[in-house]
């Protein structure tokens, strides 16, 4: 660009530059497109193709059959969808997702509101702790919680056992998948709250003070001020956080995998684990691809919602 543009001349100048520089545009954007399409587009194409091809199991098929496997239409889908195990897993995943997203958002909002009300010192300490927890990898936090809840050494059993009338010595939290998944929920929420709380806290600080003040003067109770002023203002941020949480929790893998030492029992299977054990674990790659496609379809609705919201925010800017 020639340095002719003054601040007022920009609007006149830039379209011309834009046209002339379109080669540059594609040069600057091409690398991103190549990485995006190469790393995410190709596998997507691949799983769609695989899901339509005959189930060819075994390592040999993985390395050698390139395009020779016959297409079987939707037969893989009818097989997966008529398997009651899939529906059990899907139902479990949905319940898990709703619970985890709800808890993460509710607790995150609580912490965010608290952050905006306490003195500077308490706030600085709490934010530092939250950043710290956020930085702890989920693989590590899962080990910690597994240890806390372990039947022999676990501090949780020890503490609960001290409550009169409760006998938890040697209690195995992981014998019953429901209890085990509750522990998984604790890890997931523990890891999810910091990001949500810090983002919402930053969002709340940007609410104009006079708006809240006006609500108060007009006689709104704090609860009304929260639901009528704070929540609507945070709505775009909440929707983004909710959508991301749904996507992360729906595809939960690390926490369950480590909590079960790399061998999740059937009762612990969520869609991600199920896909891994059906697809990669037992070399049924076409079945795995089919489950993957079904996962994508499940998330598609969430995606549309998210994209619309983001574009609306983009337009407003």
């Amino acid at each position: 660009m020639t340095a002719t543009g003054t601040s007022t001349g920009r609007r006149v100048v830039s379209p011309r530059i834009g046209r002339r520089g379109s080669g540059l545009a594609y040069l600057l954007i091409l690398p991103a497109v190549v990485v995006l399409v190469g790393v995410t587009g190709w596998p997507l194409y691949k799983i769609i193709m695989l899901s339509l091809q005959r189930q060819d199991s075994g390592k040999f098929a993985l390395f050698h059959s390139a395009g020779t496997t016959p297409f079987v239409g939707l037969r893989n889908f009818t097989r997966v969808l008529s398997d009651s195990a899939f529906w059990t897993v899907l139902e479990r995943t949905l319940v898990f997702t709703v619970l985890n997203v709800g808890l993460s958002l509710a607790l995150g909002m609580g912490v965010a509101l608290l952050l905006n009300r306490v003195s500077k010192w308490a706030r600085v300490i709490l934010v530092a702790v939250l950043l710290f927890v956020w930085a702890v990898p989920s693989t590590v936090s899962t080990q910690i919680f597994y240890w806390l809840f372990s039947n022999q050494y676990g501090v949780v059993n020890w503490l609960l056992d001290r409550v009169p009338g409760v006998h938890m010595r040697g209690h195995d939290w992981f014998a019953d998948p429901h209890q085990g998944l509750a522990v998984v929920t604790a890890v997931v929420v523990w890891g999810a709250v910091p990001l949500i709380a810090i983002s919402l806290h930053a969002g709340i600080t940007q609410i104009p003070r006079d708006v809240l003040e006006a609500a108060r003067v007009d006689g709104a109770s704090p609860w009304q001020a929260f639901t009528r002023v704070t929540l609507p203002f945070l709505r775009p941020l909440l929707i983004i956080l909710m959508t991301l949480s749904v996507i992360w929790d729906f595809g939960v893998f690390n926490q369950i995998w480590f909590m079960r030492n790399g061998h999740p029992e059937p009762g612990y299977q969520t869609v991600g684990i199920y896909m891994y054990s059906e697809g990669v674990g037992s070399s049924h790659y076409n079945t795995g691809a089919t489950i993957g496609v079904l996962m994508m379809v499940c998330l598609l609705g969430v995606m549309v919602f998210y994209i619309r919201q983001l574009f609306r925010i983009g337009d407003a800017e």
Binding site: L36, P43, L50, F253, M275, V280, G292, M296
Partner: peptide, 25 residues
């Protein structure tokens, strides 16, 4: 381009694992 970026943000490695494995083989 922006739509492509947004759409891929929703992609989960978990769902496409088998495809990723094929690709890198």
């Amino acid at each position: 381009f922006l739509l492509l970026v947004l759409a891929t943000q929703m992609f989960q490695p978990a769902a496409m694992l088998v495809g990723i494995q094929r690709e890198f083989i």
